[in-house]
Every structure is written in structure tokens, then in C-alpha cells.
Design a protein around this nucleic acid. Sequence first.
DNA 1: TGCCCGATTAACT
DNA 2: GTTAATCGGGCAA
Length: 191
Amino acid sequence: MPKRLTRSFFDRSVHDVAPDLIGTTLMVDGVGGRVVEVEAYHHTDPAAHSYRGPTARNAVMFGPPGYAYVYRSYGIHWCLNFVCEATGSASAVLIRAIEPTAGIATMRRRRGLTNERLLCSGPGRLCEALRVTALHNGLALDRPPFALFARQGVVESVAGPRIGLTKAVDKPWRYGEKGSRFLSKPFAREV
DNA sequence: TGCCCGATTAACT
DNA sequence: GTTAATCGGGCAA
């Protein structure tokens, strides 16, 4: 069994943590898989929820690193983030896609889908498959129901612009596993 | 207070 | 390609 990641993994720059998360394994109540796509959001970034200061929604982002920040997107979906950097820096990594490896039958049932490629290939899809909701907001990532495991072997990463933004569109802060078929969208260039 | 928009998705044409 | 679902934040009035 691979090594567990602890909260200290997240106590550094969000731009270092984000690429390092590619290839790690995320489990929620025993259901999950390999992280293949993430995006970094720094508090100085106009596209970050924390950019304009704390609110009831983004309060967890202003807390200590190694905790889950879950928010509702477009009033419908949930999105899962990992808080990074020092307490109060309000930076986080959005988990955008995973490659399902555990509890695939459960994920199919929750998503009402059989196509494995589409089970977790997007931030909202992943949260439905892992059943991540507002109840997970503020929970520690190294304690149940969460579990994170270090990657094994070499992982080839690619970077590119983030998805679905109108601000800071040019920043290449989306990271993915090269060639993965479980990405929410392909990367235009492989870096 | 009211209106517009967003770190989305699936079901349309 | 377009659109509806649906809710919190930001900004104008």
C-alpha cells in the first residue's frame, strides 16, 4: 500500500502542490481513484474565490492548509478543493478529474452512467461520484472520510490554461497527467 | 433590494 | 452549437 499523505503536504506554495497532486490517489469513504487533473487558485488571482476577502462561503480557504473547501457551482454542482499554503493565505487546488480505481460500481450507480471515462472527468462529476457535498466542507484531508495516498512511480505531467474562466485566462495553472483518457478536456499542448 | 454572472453539466438542435 | 437548471457574491440603485 502506498504511503499516506498528511496535511503537511499542503503547507507550501499552491503552485508546487498542484502539479505534485497529479498521480496521487484520493479516496472518500473507500471510493475514489488517481488524481489526473487539478487547477491552482492563489489568493492574489482575480479568478480565486478568496480574491476579494473572506465570506461565509470561502471561510475554509482562509483557514489552515490540508482541509477540504467545497462550494456549490452554478447553483447545482459541488466542487472540491484542497486548501494550501500558510493559514490565512487563502489558496487552494481545485480537483478537476480522477481516474476511477476503487468503488467503480458505486460511482456508476451514483452517476447513473456506465461509461467509466465519464464517471469523474470534471469537478462536478467527480463530486457526484464520490458523494462530496457541503458536509465535507472544512474536513481534514488526512482523516476519514478522506484518505490521500502518495503516487507510485514516475508521472508525466502537462500544464495549460484553466477552464471555464473569464478572468486571468492566460495563467497556465491547470495541470494534468499526460495522455490520460480521464481528463475533463484534453490539453492543447503537452509541456 | 434587484439584477447579473460564475472554478458546470447534460440534454437539446 | 445552444440552453436550462439554480444559488451565492458583487455591484448598482
